[in-house]
């Protein structure tokens, strides 16, 4: 059950609506419902909505709305808020993933840390359907979870300067795939051929908050046929 929501100022043109304290998949239908209500209530005065795990940042146009007016609207929006009943449950995505040490050099590290065999790490990681909790860090980078507690593994002590696009990774109880080449400190398990950030796609990002994602283990052949980059990590520089 949701406790009393808290509104926190986020400057001249923003409010953070805090609905929860802890990360839980059950938060998503509430945040989704709140987002849709805000879109309706604010109309043209709405600039951005940033949902994330437990909160929604609402950014509005300060020329047409003052903070106190926006606050009053949010209080109204929160009255009788009900979670979305599956209507906005998010799309389901299957990401073809080639789990291999050449593109997932941290498979042995995760195996060591968790006491599982590498094959078990792959099996456990590809079994679950994950939910997207938040996008951030880089365009299209989707924080997903929660992974099986048996796979929990801290991030690297020293982040890599460059992680190739498509890399599938985990850290703590979350998992993600890197949409573009960026620095990164998560444990790399393999690579997906899915295009996570594509300029040909409306909105560019494949994934949105609330979407459901499963990593499907595929062979190198399938991965390459679907356009995956099989260049080994050590040759990537």
């Amino acid at each position: 059950m949701i406790r009393k929501p808290v509104l926190e100022s986020a400057g001249l043109d923003g409010w953070i609506v805090r609905l929860f304290e802890t990360i839980d998949e059950g938060n998503l239908p509430w945040l989704s419902a709140l987002s849709h209500r805000c879109e309706q209530a604010f109309g043209d005065a709405l600039i951005d909505l940033v949902p994330s795990y437990t909160t929604l940042l609402v950014v509005f146009d300060p020329i047409t709305l003052s903070s106190s007016e926006a606050r009053a609207m949010l209080c109204q929006v929160l009255v009788d808020l009900e979670p979305d009943s599956g209507v906005h449950d998010g799309q389901v995505h299957e990401l073809p993933t080639w789990y291999d040490i050449s593109v997932g050099p941290d498979l042995p590290r995760v195996a060591d840390h968790t006491g599982l065999a590498v094959t078990d790490v792959i099996e456990v990681h590809s079994q679950r359907t994950y939910r997207v909790f938040a996008l951030g860090f880089a365009p299209g980078f989707a924080f997903k979870g929660l992974i099986d507690p048996r796979l929990e593994c801290p991030r690297l002590d020293t982040p890599r300067k460059r992680v190739p696009a498509g890399s599938v990774a985990l850290a703590g109880r979350q998992t993600a795939a890197y949409p573009t080449d960026t620095p990164g400190g998560w444990n790399l398990l393999g690579r997906t051929s899915a295009r996570l950030f594509d300029r040909q796609r409306e909105g560019f990002s494949l994934l949105r908050v609330g979407d459901q994602v499963r990593f499907v283990s595929v062979s190198r052949e399938t991965f390459e046929r679907e356009g995956g980059n099989s260049k080994p990590m050590e040759l990537e520089s």
Binding site: A10, G14, I16, T22, S52, Y53
Partner: peptide
């Protein structure tokens, strides 16, 4: 904290 949206000037 659990990561949340950050506005300009935060």
């Amino acid at each position: 904290l659990v990561s949340e949206g950050i506005n300009l000037g935060g």
